[in-house]
């Protein structure tokens, strides 16, 4: 039986199709103003018998397709444990939210927390800052940050204030890559505070779109004094977890 796991995030939509333990298909597309249409595009040509959906758009999909829905928390916990069985903590930094999940040795979720309403410390925040610093994409932004030898301090975590803080730092002559590093530092320290509160010990899986960011990955590994594992494609962990859930249910 072929099981599809679909993760409708705010920035990207991810699909994983599995047959038994084999991954038949894994792909992702950027989300648009019309998430349903994005999902149709992504599913085009994919064949599956049963679907499990997760992510912020899960309820939307549930109205159109027949599928089971699970929360992102559960999906990320399942997916992370499957790629890294000793994991006790999951840090997922996505486009619009950040989650920290603590799981016990049996894989049960013990505690979780998410960031509050605003985009502070999420992928979206990094995108806006990259733009404010005139980098053409996140990759360039992250690589530049990695070359900096010192970081400028960023005090504001509100997207709007941080943007003007960044602009004024530059106008006062700060080096662009130092500001870039400062921004990464700021979101990493904020996120780790969340993670350390929710899951203070145990091996960590770092997932979500921001785990693709080299600088964020480096800082997180350096600052967390415990093993951090980043899956080969950190973005599909939710979709993978959803597919695994479907498998266990069938």
């Amino acid at each position: 039986m072929k099981i599809a796991g679909l993760d409708i995030g705010s920035r990207t939509v991810k699909l994983v199709v599995m047959d038994g333990s084999k991954i038949l298909l894994a792909k992702k597309v950027l989300n648009s103003h019309d998430p349903l249409n994005t999902v149709f595009t992504l599913l085009d040509g994919a064949s599956y018998d049963y679907m499990v959906a997760t992510g912020y758009g899960r309820h939307l999909i549930n109205e159109v397709f027949s599928c089971t829905i699970i929360s992102e928390i559960k999906a990320f916990a399942l997916g992370s444990r499957a790629v890294y069985p000793s994991c006790r903590a999951v840090l997922d930094i996505g486009g619009q939210d950040t989650k920290a999940i603590h799981i016990n040795e049996k894989g049960k979720i013990v505690k979780f927390e998410m960031n509050d309403k605003c985009a502070a410390g999420t992928g979206r925040f990094l995108e806006i800052m990259a733009h404010a610093l005139n980098y053409s994409n996140i990759d360039e932004f992250s690589k530049a940050a990695c070359t900096a030898t010192k970081a400028q301090t960023i005090n504001n975590m509100c997207t709007v204030f941080a943007e003007s803080e960044v602009i004024s730092l530059i106008s006062r002559g700060a080096k662009r890559e130092e500001v870039a590093l400062g921004i990464h530092r700021a979101i990493v320290s904020r996120t780790l505070r969340l993670l350390n509160r929710v899951a203070p010990s145990g091996d960590v899986v770092f997932a979500g779109g921001v785990a693709l960011n080299e600088c964020a990955r480096k800082l997180i590994s350096e600052e967390l004094k415990r093993p951090v594992f980043v899956p080969p494609d950190p973005q599909i962990i939710g979709a993978y977890g959803a597919a695994l859930y479907g498998q266990n249910k069938r």
């Binding site: 912020y56 699970i70 929360s71 992102e72 928390i73 979720i109 979780f112 998410m114 509050d116 309403k117």
Partner: peptide, 17 residues
């Protein structure tokens, strides 16, 4: 009403837990 989506995710995850 702006945090309803977030709250729903938390509540659903709690129920799953």
């Amino acid at each position: 009403q702006e945090d309803i989506g977030q709250l729903k995710t938390r509540v659903e995850a709690f129920i799953e837990r």
